[in-house]
Simulated assay, not measured.
Amino acid sequence: MGKMISMIYLICLMIVGIIGFQVALIAGAPWGRLTQGGQVDGPLPLAGRIIAAVSILLLGAIALALLSADGHWPNWPRWTTWAAVAVIGISTILNWITPSSAERRLWGPIMTVLLCLTLAVVWA
């Protein structure tokens, strides 16, 4: 149980870092090449910033679903954990197949580690 708690906290820490990246994008950080297919050079336009905001909500829900998997608050049903795994899995694939090489190099490995940790938690 102790190892699982540590993994969940590591996952949540990674998610907080990703949320920080999304917040920076919303605030105008010039990192468009590192996200959303790498189509924007510089700060994201309004539509891209809205997508970043939606990503923050989704990431928060993923973190809460994984905390629930270990019996922590908010104690969501088990299916939410599997939904979180599915979203992370899809995101991992999308980050590896993006046309942006910078995005692949940054997010491919990060999302792969996040997916592996998440799978370890749900299969524990």
Rank of each mutant, 00 (worst) to 15 (best):
W82E: 03
L58D: 02
V54R: 01
I62D: 06
W76K: 10
R33Q: 15
W82C: 01
P45Q: 01
D41R: 13
R78Y: 05
P99Q: 00
A83P: 04
P45V: 09
S100N: 05
L44E: 14
R78A: 08
P43N: 08
S101K: 15
W76S: 09
R33Y: 13
S55T: 11
N95E: 12
P45L: 05
L44T: 10
G32K: 02
D70S: 12
G48M: 10
H72S: 10
I97W: 00
S68V: 02
T35D: 13
L94P: 08
R33G: 15
S100K: 08
I88Y: 07
A102V: 00
G89E: 10
A69V: 08
L46T: 02
S101Q: 15
S91V: 15
S100T: 05
S55R: 10
L94K: 09
T92P: 00
A84V: 04
W73D: 08
I50K: 13
S55V: 04
V87Q: 03
A102D: 14
E103Q: 13
W79L: 03
G71P: 00
P74R: 09
L66P: 04
G42T: 00
P45E: 03
L94D: 15
N75Q: 12
A47C: 05
L46G: 00
G89I: 07
L66E: 02
A69F: 07
L64P: 04
G48N: 11
P43W: 06
G60P: 00
W79M: 01
L46R: 07
R49I: 08
A52W: 10
P77R: 03
P74Y: 00
A61N: 06
W76A: 10
I51A: 14
G60D: 02
G48Q: 13
L67W: 10
P99V: 00
I50A: 12
L58P: 04
T92D: 12
I51S: 12
A47N: 11
I90V: 15
L59Q: 13
H72V: 04
P77D: 02
S55L: 11
V54S: 08
V54F: 12
V87K: 03
L94S: 11
L46F: 15
Q39S: 13
A83N: 01
T35E: 14
R49M: 13
L64G: 01
T80C: 13
I93P: 05
I50H: 03
I93T: 12
T92A: 12
L44S: 11
R33C: 10
L58R: 01
T80Q: 11
A61E: 05
R78F: 11
A53D: 04
W73C: 06
V85M: 12
A47K: 07
A86Q: 02
S91G: 15
P74L: 08
G60C: 15
I90C: 02
G37W: 00
L64A: 12
S68E: 02
S55D: 14
D70G: 15
S101D: 14
A86Y: 00
S101L: 14
N95T: 14
V87N: 07
T35Y: 09
L44R: 08
L59N: 10
T98G: 04
R78Q: 09
A83E: 00
A53C: 09
W82R: 06
W82F: 03
T98Q: 02
A53E: 05
G60Y: 11
G37T: 00
S68M: 02
W76E: 03
S100A: 11
L57C: 15
R49G: 01
A53W: 06
I90W: 12
S100H: 02
I90R: 05
I51F: 11
G71M: 06
W73M: 09
